[in-house]
């Protein structure tokens, strides 16, 4: 502790001395941390997003539990679930969750190839990374088209 505070004192003195010596203070060299270093999009960025989808999916499992339990509990409980799921926040959560599940699964497939020692070439990593992102968006869109169109015949069926 004593040594540390001494060091601090010396540092501040040192800064003062350099300030008086050189009027235009030169910024100290900085190691490339997150806000400075541009992360390669297809490497660490995708990995970070993958980790975020992991957490989202764990959260989503509790929604899945709610869904299963609501169906068990009866029509009223299921109606409450549907009301929440169809609210604005519910829709955002559901779209985000479906994309998370799809992205996570596609990324895991890419990861399986990495585990087998394949796809480590620089351009392959970039290509498969972009493929995973694009495919996840396309598949999510298709799933939602499926979900939205699956409503129509049923409503027709109810009326007809």
């Amino acid at each position: 502790m004593l040594g540390h505070s001494k060091l601090k004192g010396k540092n501040s003195q040192g800064e003062k001395m350099s300030d008086s010596a050189a009027p235009a203070a030169r910024p100290r060299p900085t190691s490339p941390h997150l806000t400075i270093y541009r992360l390669p999009l297809t490497g660490p960025m995708l990995s970070i997003v993958h980790r975020a989808t992991e957490v989202a999916m764990a959260f989503g499992l509790f929604i899945l539990t709610w869904w299963c339990f609501a169906i068990l509990s009866g029509p009223d409980a299921y109606a409450v679930f549907l009301d929440c799921a169809r609210s604005i926040l519910g829709r955002i959560v559901m779209i985000g969750l479906s994309w998370s599940v799809i992205y996570h699964t596609l990324y895991d497939i890419r990861q399986l190839f990495f585990d087998m020692g394949k796809g480590f070439e620089k351009h392959t990593i970039a290509q498969t990374g972009i493929m995973v992102v694009l495919a996840s968006i396309i598949v999510t869109a298709l799933v939602w088209v499926l979900a939205c169109t699956s409503v129509a015949p049923q409503i027709g069926g109810v009326h007809g």
């Binding site: 169906i71 009866g74 029509p75 299921y78 109606a79 479906s98 599940v101 799809i102 699964t105 799933v143 939602w144 499926l146 979900a147 939205c148 699956s150 409503v151 129509a152 049923q154 409503i155 109810v158």
Partner: peptide, 18 residues
């Protein structure tokens, strides 16, 4: 997951009984 996602998407608009 492929099966579950497609199934749940198809069930999204269905009534409780279905």
């Amino acid at each position: 997951v492929t099966w579950a996602v497609i199934s749940i998407a198809l069930l999204a608009g269905q009534p409780y009984e279905v």
